[in-house]
Design a protein around this nucleic acid. Structure first.
Lengths: 114, 114
DNA sequence: ACAACTGTACTAATTCAGTTAATACAGTTT
DNA sequence: AAACTGTATTAACTGAATTAGTACAGTTGT
């Protein structure tokens, strides 16, 4: 593979599949190609695809059932996960800013002016 | 060297010196040991120390004058830099959260509850 | 003027974490 | 039982981060 600039293969593949799902080209519950199937088509190692699937599952975009296959998850679940993760990250940013001397008012002001 | 767990030498040294300055053990304008002097004492490469100094200068904690030496900077300058950097990082976090569907009200709520 | 200092620039060697590959396992399906 | 599935484990590879080696240019004190 190694088409895009520098980015690891499993990441490139992640983006492709993410697009397919978010754009609606693949719908909820639809079965994804088998790990080895994709590996063969793209001439990459099955383990690389496996890693992509694992990451997509962690994101909540797909779910995998051993010995059966991998499927597109419900968009709602994905959106919930993204929101939860984003909230956590934002909370961390706030904690850090407060620790370094910015006040809550400072932060509200920044948000207001965006 | 290689005392602490995993962290690069120049980073460990950075932390040590940062503590010395922030705790007040080294005061504004005081001259730091020469690059080679520290290197000798810790049995590390002068370039590693050089890198530490360069980073500390980027942080605004010290300033270096070629052929003369490196000195502890004014705390005010450092604090200003830290604040500016923190604001930028926080701004980025806000932008990201907004992009992912959180509202400004959501963010204000999070700040309030910390 | 010169020896002994300073910080810095540049290149090369080394190290190490991230990525990919090879192989094997365990369950499902037909 | 053969041909599929996802997954775990270990090893090989690669490239970027880290460290080392060396040289340069300016300042200071003798």
């Amino acid at each position: 593979m190694r088409l895009e600039g520098g980015a690891p293969v499993y990441e490139q593949l992640e983006r492709r599949i993410t697009e397919l799902i978010l754009s609606g080209e693949m719908t909820e519950g639809e079965k994804l190609p088998a790990v080895r199937e994709i590996a063969r088509q793209l001439s990459i190692n099955p383990n690389t695809v496996q890693r992509t699937y694992a990451n997509l599952e962690a994101l909540g975009l797909i779910y995998s059932i051993p010995s059966k296959g991998s499927y597109v998850a419900m968009k709602k679940d994905y959106i919930d996960k993204v929101r939860a993760k984003t909230s956590e990250e934002f909370t961390e940013a706030v904690r850090n800013a407060l620790k370094l001397g910015l006040s809550k008012d400072d932060l509200n002001e920044i948000i207001k002016n965006i």
